[in-house]
Design a protein around this nucleic acid. Sequence first.
DNA 1: GTCTATAAGGGGATAGAC
DNA 2: GTCTATCCCCTTATAGAC
Lengths: 204, 204
Amino acid sequence: MKTRERILQCALELFNEHGEPNVTTLDIATELDISPGNLYYHFRGKEALLEELLADFLDQTHGLLHLESRAGPLEPEDYWLFLHLLFESIIAYRFLFQDLSNLIGRYTVIARSMRQWVDALRSTLKRLLLDLHEQQRLLCDAQALERLLDALCQTVLFWLDYQRVSQREDDEPTQAVQQVLGLLLPYLETDTRHWMSSLIQRYN
Amino acid sequence: MKTRERILQCALELFNEHGEPNVTTLDIATELDISPGNLYYHFRGKEALLEELLADFLDQTHGLLHLESRAGPLEPEDYWLFLHLLFESIIAYRFLFQDLSNLIGRYTVIARSMRQWVDALRSTLKRLLLDLHEQQRLLCDAQALERLLDALCQTVLFWLDYQRVSQREDDEPTQAVQQVLGLLLPYLETDTRHWMSSLIQRYN
DNA sequence: GTCTATAAGGGGATAGAC
DNA sequence: GTCTATCCCCTTATAGAC
């Protein structure tokens, strides 16, 4: 593998494991057995490295957060798939979420991108909820829907952090998906609820 | 006011505003118009400062998270008060939550204390939910209760972060309390639900 | 492309005078 | 109690040889 690629992959691993603020360019170079100078030959600095990793993440999730191109609303089973893929990407780039406030405070580029990403996430989730609502599968008023939407967004963004603090860290998206779908449960119409409930069980 | 107290208060303000990792001991000294040496006369270092602020926070919330001494379960209106007081403390020491993963990674003392705090929070919330359940006011099975409990904990811990990322920062606990109570809503028995619903409305 | 060496700056922390 | 001066270490980043 090319050095440039190795640097990116190693940086991602170290960032995810120790948190971006706790990983220096020297750490990355040492881990790869290359010189710090070499690292700076391939990337202008830590921020450039960060931006490229961020771009990869945005790329990887772009399809998921721009479903409008698709024809028609999702089928129930697709909700599980959607969340599973989403959390797979989040877990793969979890350093972005672990120190989100910090990153946003220190790098304006990241702040802009991540805020846009959160907006897109919120829009997409809202669209999915509205679809369910129109199909009479989700039963609630507009206000409850907004609150539910915030609860979903919050769980998507911070579930990993919560698991970490609770010392229940997990590299699999299963629990996260179950938690998000669980938030939907009490608002679902009876048949859909039973269906969703057994779906959640199935992945235990 | 004594210098020692001024340092603590100033540190708290700066940590809350900029995040602990972005505030140096020199920043604090400069803001107070004292020398860095003076600061180190009063506190052994940044970590000692941090620990004292943490101790203050634990103190301030200790009563809330150890309700078992109280006689009997809470009345519905007390749930609002409980959450209001809790979020007031969290907002006052929000730097602890804003960079929680980071702080936990860098300071083992903080990690231990905050994990204990989260455990106490979870226990207390669980106790409150079980009380409601026994009173037939909360209708759900054990599994749903656990998921609800996690949703509550997560919201308590990360609502401020979520608001920050969404650029809807707020120094008042109102929205946070409404969001947490909103999570309860769909599981409540009809009368309690209406009561709680109007309670949420009232504080808009 | 890769290395060694090193500059430049920041942050934590201490010594010693007042 | 408070100040000035200073040290040390870590991190980022660059220069120049190979």
